[in-house]
Amino acid sequence: MKTFFYLKSCSTCNRIIKELDLPSDIELHDIKSSPISEEQINHLKELAGSFEALFSKRAQLYKSENLKDKNLNEEDFKFYLLKHYTFLKRPVLVYNSHIFIGNSSKTVEAAKAFIQKNE
């Protein structure tokens, strides 16, 4: 699987797409127009190690639903990831059996180096 999960309307995601210079065989998956399936989220969890690693605690809904005050477990994280696209920490790049989650400069640089090495 070579997929880039992102939000089309997100300027940070679009900047990262350009910065990574993604190969043409990587599928761009807009999580708003095409929500992530349970099968996909389970696969991402296998690669990431947990649903929590995929979960964005910066999401507006995280704050507005007072989730920070709740003790969420893995099933809760999965539920919210499937409930609304905003809970996915983005972007997420899956390149075969490797996963890169989020938009930190360290993550983007690691993804860029990995892509260049594996093209």
Rank of each mutant, 00 (worst) to 15 (best):
D21E: 08
L54M: 09
I16R: 12
K63Y: 09
T107L: 06
L61F: 07
I41M: 15
L47V: 00
C10L: 10
R58D: 13
R90V: 15
D25M: 09
E46P: 00
S97V: 05
D69T: 11
L72T: 05
S105A: 03
Y6I: 01
S105Y: 08
S9Y: 00
L7C: 08
L72S: 07
P91E: 03
D25S: 11
E65K: 14
S56Y: 10
H84K: 09
T86W: 00
H98D: 12
N66S: 15
S105E: 11
F87E: 02
K117R: 15
E46D: 11
E52T: 13
L7A: 13
E75H: 12
L47G: 00
F5A: 03
Y6K: 08
S64Y: 12
E65W: 13
K32H: 05
N73P: 00
F87S: 11
V92I: 06
F100D: 00
D76H: 00
I99P: 01
P91I: 11
L28F: 08
S56H: 02
F100G: 06
D30P: 06
K89Q: 10
D21P: 02
M1L: 00
D30N: 10
P23I: 14
K8H: 02
L54H: 11
K70W: 07
S24G: 04
N71Q: 11
A59Q: 14
G49C: 05
L67M: 09
L93Q: 07
E27C: 11
D76C: 08
C10W: 14
F5W: 10
Y95W: 09
L81D: 01
K112T: 06
P35F: 07
L20D: 14
P23R: 06
I31F: 09
N66P: 00
A53I: 07
S97M: 05
D76N: 13
D25G: 02
V92L: 01
R58T: 05
F4A: 13
R15D: 03
T3Y: 01
K2M: 01
Q40F: 02
K78Y: 06
P35W: 06
T86I: 15
K8A: 01
F100C: 06
A110V: 12
F77A: 04
E119H: 12
S34L: 13
T107W: 04
G49F: 02
K83Y: 06
M1N: 03
F100W: 05
K70D: 02
K106W: 12
L54E: 05
L54R: 07
